[in-house]
Amino acid sequence: MIYKEQKGGRGMMLLKLEIGGVVHGLEIDPIVEIIPSINTDPLESCLKGVVGSVVYRGKCVPVLDVELLKQGNHTKAVLSTRIIVVDLDGKRVAIRAEGVTDILNGEENIFNVRQVSVSDYWTDAYLSAV
């Protein structure tokens, strides 16, 4: 479970992930759940990076591999690679990323981290296509 703001207010919180070995901070607002990187079921898609789908709480959710989208390589099959289930305006989609191990908050130096949002990957064109 991710707490956006604890009592006393600690400012912005980002989910740490790595793309091509570079640390990125993903906005946490749309995140529903972070799950282990389970095997995806095949999904017919011509969208670059979309590797398949997972059944999440009884519903089929498409999974976008950000490593594949940005670097052209599949994510490593290790414990720190996780699937991040997000809610974008009522639509459930997921992102698979490496190095999902930390929450970065305002107490740490987050200014050296590249801040990204889910819509950078799941663009409107992608959302309408799945």
Binding site: P36, V55, Y56, L79
Partner: peptide
């Protein structure tokens, strides 16, 4: 966390998520 997943673990997670 840089170790690979035990296969049985992934299967159990997948089953749980189907509920």
């Amino acid at each position: 966390l840089e170790r690979s997943h035990p296969e049985a673990y992934l299967e159990s997670v997948k089953d749980n998520l189907k509920i």
